[in-house]
Simulated assay, not measured.
Amino acid sequence: MDQETSRRPADGPAANRVRPTRQLDRTEALRLLATVSLGRLVFTHRALPAIRPTSHHVDGEDVLVRVDEGVSRASLAPTPGEPGLVLGYEADAIDACTHLGWSVVVIGHAELIVNRDEAERLAALLDPWRDRPMADVLRIRSELVTGFRLGS
């Protein structure tokens, strides 16, 4: 076996099977999204696509994320009182060996939480997985929720 082949996570018959894909409805997609705490925030930075890993919390049909004071804050946070930027958020749980799992994407306008008490309360719901200070909480108002499940 060559070195490239030995690094593949799923060799053998299971790796070569075609998996059926099933679309998720909005309710199921949000339910699955709430079962994990990490995902990827998708936004535009200097006119280019940018993706950052971050923690999230599902609050009803909205997604809460924390942003730091660096590039994320400058690129993501709308000015209070102005319409929010359109952002994407993606999370998944796909097994590397079986290739079974799901993926969910939420698209919506971002809203900076400006009330400090509310921001602190919501920030406490988010897993502080990074050692970098997280300055603000953004609420993504889910307008489009899509997802799929990779079947067995």
Rank of each mutant, 00 (worst) to 15 (best):
L41S: 01
L33M: 10
L126M: 02
R17C: 03
S55H: 09
G108T: 00
D68W: 07
V145L: 03
P9N: 02
P49K: 02
V42I: 11
R116Y: 01
S72Q: 15
V104W: 07
T54V: 12
L126N: 03
L87Q: 08
T54N: 01
V86E: 08
G12K: 01
R26F: 08
S6Q: 15
R139T: 07
E120W: 03
L144K: 04
E82G: 02
A50N: 12
T44Q: 14
A91W: 01
A74C: 10
L38W: 11
I94T: 07
P133S: 04
E28F: 00
R132G: 00
A77N: 10
R132C: 00
A91L: 13
A91V: 02
P20F: 02
L85P: 09
D59Q: 13
E28V: 04
D136C: 00
V36M: 09
V65P: 06
P128L: 10
M1F: 14
D131Y: 07
P53Q: 08
S142P: 00
R8E: 15
A124Y: 02
L64C: 04
W102C: 03
P9H: 09
R52S: 10
R121E: 11
H56A: 06
G70I: 06
A77M: 13
E120Q: 09
P13Q: 09
G108E: 13
A135H: 03
L122Q: 04
T98V: 04
R22S: 12
D11C: 15
L85G: 05
L138P: 08
S103R: 06
A29Q: 02
I107N: 07
L126W: 11
A123T: 12
D25Q: 04
M134P: 06
N115T: 12
I51A: 06
G101P: 12
P20T: 14
S37I: 13
A29S: 10
S103M: 02
R8V: 07
H56Y: 14
D127A: 01
V36S: 07
R40I: 06
H109N: 15
L41H: 12
D11F: 11
F148V: 00
D2I: 14
L76Y: 13
A34E: 07
I107M: 13
A74L: 10
R149G: 13
E82N: 01
L76Q: 14
V63I: 01
L144F: 11
T79F: 04
P80A: 00
T54F: 10
T44I: 06
V71S: 15
E111T: 14
C97A: 15
R130N: 04
R26N: 07
V105A: 03
A10V: 11
